[in-house]
Nucleic acid binder design. Structure first.
Lengths: 345, 345
DNA sequence: ATAACTTATTAAATCTGTTAAATAAGTTTT
DNA sequence: AAAACTTATTTAACAGATTTAATAAGTTAT
């Protein structure tokens, strides 16, 4: 119904958001820098920073070297002003970290899995304890192995207790802090993207997993979800006369066998790469560190060229999935934190 | 370098753009309607409209029926205030239309192809004549069968004269009006999308063509271009043990044979559909009217289900490619027109 | 060491959109 | 038909960000 909001009232919020985002992303800044980056006049920036310094949200860390004139005062975000909580629910355990806005991890812990047994009530208990012990926590991001739409768990096969739960709404109400909920692969690809400071890139994050392969897809910096939240279910891609990707990979070995090694696996993955190149032509293609090594990547690169012109192949990389996942959640957590406080003050 | 622009100076531009876009999109409005839709206060809207009416850009078309109080004045955009020119260059001919901001076509014509013979100079001559004869033309969109980046023709196989030409820059300089340049499939998918007033949808537009198949892809309302402008080159998708999509389609018959009919063609397309579903899970999948009919679509729908769960299949539709193409160019033309004039006044 | 130049910051004036109150133009109720 | 109510528009006071001018704090050249 409403068009794109040319909302001039919210200029203040936008500016605050911009200042915080910049300060947090780059660690420290001066007023002139901010003024240029945000395209906002110096006096305005100055007024905001003065107020924020009074609130204890930022503080000065001294003067820059002179560049020919008066030395500029450098400001830094107070990393203890507020903390974030990232939780990811997995089949066998629940991990969480508490971190400040610089991404420094203040605390890290493991809890029993709640997906199958304790369910929502147990999760709530755990979070309550964590938040009570760390009252500075002012936002939270939760990662789940399921499809999420706008904070509601849409589809989470195997864990019926969480099916159709509006985690975001429930916890925002319950704890009165902003909450983000995201699918694991989407969080991982976001984390990879943010961690490397990429801009407007298209990426594919593939994991072959034991429960069937899946992919996280990012296009021009936006996570792709699909019309029925089915995007990334690459197991269904038809690849051979009578086998799709999952059947071609055929990963039903005993536990422990994670690394890709066989000829037929490499061909299947290379065909998948080719499909991605021909369809969305991404900048990067990311594997999980524990599923491929340098040699395998080289092989995949070589075989892919049989299917698509080499100049269109993406960059290949093996990355640490858990770390990316965590970083993605932290990013989401900081986002809602920044948005929220900018709405208030 | 610069962050997202929280630019408070350009509020005026935003408002003007919003007013124009709304007025053009919906035909007519009242001040209250605009105020609500754009989230801008009534007095501000009022001031702008008064000025625009003075300029002859809009005019009143009388009063609304009363809804219990004073009757509201209804305004309409002056459709003759400015005209747009859409041109598409094809192998065998050059088509153009002149239209007003309501999309009404004022003039339509055909010219000889310039892609192979006359090249840029001849195209310039043609456009000059058209613009001289219609001085109200204040923006232009050009469609080309090649990859375009930011107005520059990046890759246009077979038409060397246009390789690496910055059409947008050249003509904006030459004619002093804003210019948009876009790839044919991208324009077509944009046209389809806008014509049906869709929002944030993901779509695939497939044409099987004689020069190899290709696809236009839109994700959440944004055209997908790819890291090396290779996206949509679906001919390379591996589909069978030893054939990719192009080889499977095998469309090297004599001229005139456009309609899809054979069993093997249906299977290849269904596999492609399945790949798209598993990768980006689009809302809609569009074919060209002259390549499929209802029966074929039903067949494709049936066969696709062999490869992916039926509930995730997109809507299928056959559409008029030329019409979509034209409408896409008109949309682009109006966009740059609105942007440009909002920057000036 | 003083003049000339750079750069950062502050102060004052201006511009632009918002809010709130007043007015205009209708409809419905009594 | 007058009073009470609705809705649209105008007017005046206000708020917030910008621009411009003034000031502060350094550096470099002579």
């Amino acid at each position: 119904m409403d068009e794109k909001l040319a909302n001039p009232k919210s200029v203040k919020k936008m500016i605050l958001r911009g200042i915080r985002r910049n300060l947090i992303e780059f660690g420290s800044t001066t007023k002139v820098e901010l003024s240029h980056k945000l395209q906002v006049s110096f006096p305005t920036i100055s007024k905001f920073l003065t107020q924020m310094e009074k609130n204890g949200e930022i503080f000065s860390i001294g003067l820059d070297e002179s560049s020919g004139g008066r030395r500029a005062k450098r400001f830094m975000y107070n990393p203890e002003y507020m903390l974030g909580l990232a939780i990811f629910l997995e089949r066998s355990e629940t991990n969480y970290t508490i971190f400040n806005c610089l991404g420094e991890i203040k605390h890290q812990g493991k809890l029993p899995s709640v997906l199958r047994d304790g369910g929502l009530p147990e999760l709530t208990t755990y979070i309550s304890k964590i938040i009570n012990a760390n009252p500075k926590i002012s936002s939270m991001a939760i990662g789940v192995p399921g499809a999420v739409e706008n904070g509601r768990i849409f589809h989470i096969p195997g864990y019926d207790q969480f099916q159709n739960i509006d985690l975001k709404g429930y916890y925002e109400e319950h704890f009165s802090i902003p909450v983000a909920v995201e699918n694991d692969m989407n969080a991982a690809i976001l984390g990879y993207y943010k961690n490397r400071n990429l801009k407007d890139q298209s990426l594919v994050y593939l994991y072959s997993g034991k429960n069937g392969p899946g992919a996280g897809i990012m296009l021009n910096g936006n996570v792709v979800r699909g019309s029925t939240f089915f995007s990334g279910e690459v197991q269904f891609v038809p690849q051979y006369n009578d086998r799709n990707f999952q059947q071609a990979l055929n990963r039903e070995h005993g536990p422990g066998k994670e690394m890709i090694s066989e000829e037929y696996e490499v061909d299947a993955i290379s065909r998948l790469v080719a499909s991605f190149v021909a369809i969305i032509n991404p900048h990067g293609f990311i594997f999980c560190k524990d599923e491929v090594d340098e040699t395998i990547i080289e092989k995949i690169k070589a075989v892919s060229q049989k299917y698509v012109p080499v100049e269109h192949l993406p960059e290949f990389e093996a990355s640490d999935w858990e770390q990316d996942y965590l970083f993605g959640l932290q990013t989401l957590c900081l986002d809602v934190m920044i948005d929220e406080i900018s709405n208030i003050s």
